[in-house]
């Protein structure tokens, strides 16, 4: 439970912070390739990235998630991340239980790579993120991606997998919002303690916030 996190030795925190920091760079590189993203005002690009980064990291981590043992396995077993590894980085089951449920549900959609990529792009270009100024421009870019996704599913994804697939994918975006909220809550708690925030990277502190400075 969230009240019983043992903060005294978060042995996985430095490693997970590095992994998340690396992933944030990947998310930025990905966002820059989305048509129209670079044409947004710099402030809007920053607002979109800061609010969606953790959601896109959760989405992209589905590629390494395996239903066999409910771990994130990257290549060999040397890079296998268990739920317990994430708790040793300071997160509680209040985040991890719904996160694993999300990973299982997403995995079972058996998305094509094209659909997976479009879902990440749609997630980044959400006009309702805090701090976004030109919401109508972001909305038009997101609408275009949604139409491409729906067309792709209709033309390239055979039934029965395609049945209600678009609606199920949009539901995943809603799930990500609450995962994001819980992550923020737990991150805030962690970063409030200097002995832990000092183990985070400058990029993580900038994107997720630095309570200390």
């Amino acid at each position: 439970s969230s009240v019983n996190i043992d903060f005294s030795h978060l042995s996985m925190l430095p490693h997970l912070a590095d992994l998340v920091s690396y992933s944030i760079q990947k998310v930025i590189g990905f966002a820059k390739m989305i048509p129209g993203f670079r044409n947004l005002a710099a402030e809007d690009q920053i607002a979109l990235l800061k609010s969606s980064a953790i959601e896109v990291i959760m989405l992209r981590s589905n590629q390494s998630f395996t239903l066999e043992d409910m771990t994130w396995t990257c290549g060999s077993n040397d890079f296998k991340y268990r739920i317990s590894d994430v708790t040793q980085a300071g997160h509680s089951m209040d985040l991890l239980e719904p996160l694993v449920k999300f990973q299982v549900g997403l995995k079972k959609l058996n998305l094509h790579e094209e659909e997976h990529v479009l879902l990440m792009a749609i997630c980044i270009l959400s006009p309702d993120r805090p701090g976004v100024q030109d919401t109508s421009l972001v909305e038009s870019l997101q609408d275009r991606l949604s139409e491409i996704l729906q067309t792709y599913i209709r033309c390239r994804h055979p039934p029965p997998g395609s049945r209600l697939l678009y609606a199920k994918m949009i539901q995943k975006l809603a799930d990500l919002r609450s995962l994001n909220e819980e992550h923020s809550k737990q991150y805030r708690c962690l970063s409030f303690q200097p002995e832990h925030s000092m183990q985070l990277t400058p990029l993580v502190l900038e994107v997720f916030g630095n309570e200390i400075s």
């Binding site: 930025i28 820059k32 690009q45 920053i46 990235l49 800061k50 400058p202 990029l203 900038e206 994107v207």
Partner: peptide, 18 residues
Amino acid sequence: KKKENNALLRYLLDKDDV
């Protein structure tokens, strides 16, 4: 609300090979 400059994000957004 404290002022955020987001210097790293700006740098990574401008950098060509990211």
